[in-house]
Amino acid sequence: MVEKTKLRPFNKALPWILLLPLVILVLMFYILPIVITMPLSFTSMGLSFKWLFVGLENFRNIPRDPIIPQIIGNTFIYVFFTLIVFNFGMAVLLSLLTTSISDRWGGFFRTLWMLPRITPSVVYGLLWLWIFDPSKNGLLNIILSVLGMPSQDMFHHNPMLLIVFANGFVGASMGMMVFSAAIKAIPIEYYRAAMVDGAGWFTMVRKITLPLIRWHLLFITAYETLSLFTSYQYILIITNGGPVNRTNVWALYTYQTAFSDFKFGYGAALSLVLVVVGVIAGLLYIHNIHVESTSGNALEI
C-alpha cells in the first residue's frame, strides 16, 4: 500500500501514457480523415489538387448524375441479397447444422467456411473468376455440362449474382461463428424438456434456439448491413463494377470517382453519405451491445 501512495501522481497520468499510441493513431486515421472530408466535399478538387470551393455544387450534382439511380439500385440488390441469403441466412443454417453434429466435424465445417475470409482477397477473386469462367473451363459450366445444360456466361447474364455469391461465401462465416457460440451456450435442459414433450428438430430450432439467439441475430444483421454497404474490395477485384456499371455500388463508385476519374471533390461528397450512414450505424451498434450486456447475454465467441 505504501508503494501505491507513493506512485499516485504518476499513476494518474500512466493510463494516458499507455493509451497515447492508440490515441495518436485514432486521431490520425479516423478523426482527421472525417475532418478533411467535410471541407473537401465543397471543392471542385481535380487533377491539379487545388482547393477551389464551389459551395453545394457537388451535392447538387449527385441527383443529377445519370449513373446514380443505377448505383443505388445495385447497392440495394447487393446488400439485401448478400445479407439475406448468405451473411444472415447461410450463417443461421450453417450454425444450426454444425451444432447438430459432433463438435469435431462441426468445427471442421466451420473452419472450412473460415477459409475464404482469411484467404487474400486477390486469390479469392481468382477462384470466383474461375468458378464463373464463361468458357467450358469454369466450375459452373462443368457442372451444367454434366447435367446436360448449356454453358452460362454469368459475367453478362447475371453479374450481380456473381458478386453476391463471392461476397456471401466470405460474409457467412462471421454470423456462423457468432451464432454457433451462442447456440452452444444455451443450457441443455431446455432441449431436454422439449424432447420430453416430443418436439422435433425444427420445432426446437423455432421455439428454443432462434428466440434465445435473437440478440445475436439482430446484432449481426445490423453489423453486416453496414459492413456490406461500405465494402467494395471483392467487387473491385472481380468485375471492377462492370460490365458497364452493372455491378457498381455506392462505395466502389466513390472510390472510382476519386481514384480513377480524379474528381476528389465529388468523391468526397459521395463518401460523406457513407460517413453519415457509418456514424448512425455505429451509434445503433453501440446501443445494441449495451442492450445485450444488460440482457445478461453478452457477446462471446
Partner: peptide
C-alpha cells in the same frame, strides 16, 4: 449484346 463490358481476355480467346 453482352459484348460491352466483357473482359479483354475472353474476347481474345
Amino acid at each position: 449484346k453482352t459484348l460491352t463490358g466483357s473482359p479483354w481476355n475472353s474476347i481474345h480467346r
